[in-house]
Structures are given as structure tokens and as C-alpha cells.
Amino acid sequence: MPTKIEKDEVTGVETTGHEWDGIRELNNPLPKWWVYTFYVSVAYAVIWWVLFPAIPFGPSATGGLTGSETRDRVLAEIERVEAERATVRQRLVGAELSYIQDDPTLFTYALTGGRIAFGDNCAPCHGVGGTGQLSYPVLADDDWIWGGTIEDIQHTIQWGVRWPDFEFDTRFAMMPAFGADGILTREEVDQVVDFVLAMSGRADEADPDLIEAGAEVYEWNCASCHGDGGEGMHVMGAPALNNQIWLFGGEREQIWQQIWNPRHGVMPGFAERLDEATIKMLAVYVHALGGGQ
């Protein structure tokens, strides 16, 4: 509180009466333009209260005469952006997949749009950037269960894998439960595990006698889908066995389990969830993730 208003001797100006450690403040007048600017600001605030939403009342607020609503503006903005994108999206829908990759504008648009759609729809299982996890395929590598061409990828995204809603179009294949259903004996399964380990370049982990026996079991039971050399077969959804990539794990125990009583992954088809342009963008993006095939 002001204590003692006095006249400063040097300047002849009154003090404000405030004192801090012996320092007193002169009460110099404000410039007129400053005062008027202040009044204009006050008037501006009043006009704002009247025209725009301003004072909160419970769950709502005063609406203002203009009826301005930020939500409406966001919606209008979204509409505007979508209208702007409509031409590119139309071109995307009309374009052949291989053509998209040769058109820099479409390609850049598809890569960016695909990355965003991937984050929304695919990343929960396949990981951001397609890094995958146990039981969910890595999409950033060069190994493809159902084919790695851009058309193959589009088909898989569209109709899914073992997805009951698209009975006729979905990717479908079942590996027999060789052990559980009694097709092979326990001994035979042990043998074929060692053979598969050797096929993937890990012969040092396997027993040479079992490998030899396993080769015969493999030829009769597995080669028709997984190939003579374990190279896999895309149309059957049979993964390659001669490489370092294991969907359900590459440990001896895990391989044994997968032969005895195999698990089968399910991926939803996105044909009814996403529009054609988005599926195409996803195909372009996923294809690029793996470095292209």
C-alpha cells in the first residue's frame, strides 16, 4: 500500500508512495497514445465478448452473435483439404500399381499416405515401420509368406489371411497337425526338426544321423508345400524354411511345436474397412518397406 506520497526534489515529480529498500518510484504520466491504446484494447475486448464465444456457463459458454464455432471451422478445413486431395486420390484409384511407382507425385503421395494408414491399421500387430513380432510377420525384410510383389501385397491387405468374412478371396492354407493328428510318430518329428535346422544353415546344432532320416520324412510329408530345398511356396502360404526368418520362432523347441501342432495366424481383410485408394497406398508403402521385390 502507498504510504507516503511526496514530491521528489530533483525532478519535481510526485512519487507513487511505494518504497523498496529505499528506492522510490516516480509517478511519471503515461504518454497519451499509450492511454488511448489501452482504451481501444478494452473496447476491443467488449466487442469480442459480444461477437464470439467468451464467458463459460457450466458445461457451455456464451455463443456470441456471430455463432462462430471452432469445431465448424475444423470440419470446413477437413472438407477443403479432402476436396483438394480428391484429384490425386482419383488418379490413385485409376492407376495400375506398377504405374504408381513410376509417377513421382503419386508415389510420394502414396508413400506418405501409406505410412499414416499403416500406423492406424497395421502397426499394432506388425509394428511401426513393419518390424513385426513373434507370430506377426516382419514386413521390412525380404521374406514373404504370401508373395512380395506389390500386387501380392495388395491382395493380402484387401482380403486378409484366413479371414472368415472373405471366404473365397482370403489367403487360405492349413498345415496338417503332423504329430497331434498322428500322421507322424514322435521319432519322425524329431528327425524332421533336425533336417529343417540343417536346411537353414544350422547343421552344427543337429545330429547327422537324424538329419539323414529326417530328409526322407521331409520329402514325403513337407516338400510338396515347402519345396524340395525348403524355398517355400507363396501360393500355398508355405514359408521358406531355408533362411534365417522364423514366424513362430527358430529355436528347436519352437520348430518342433510348429510341426507337431501348428499355429496359424489370422489377418483381417481390409476391403470393407478401407477404401481402394488407401489400400493401394498401403501396398506401395509396405512394398517399399522391404526394399522392393
Binding site: G127, V128, G129, G130, T131, V138, A140, D141, D142, D143, G201, A240, N243, Q244, I245, G291
Partner: peptide
């Protein structure tokens, strides 16, 4: 960095 590296089919690191 979304996936620090990827193991390829032949075991090499990309």
C-alpha cells in the same frame, strides 16, 4: 529408427 535394423532371409542385417 522404427526398427533399428532388419534381419534378412540370408541372415544379413539391413
Amino acid at each position: 529408427r522404427s526398427g533399428l535394423y532388419v534381419t534378412l532371409a540370408d541372415g544379413s542385417i539391413r
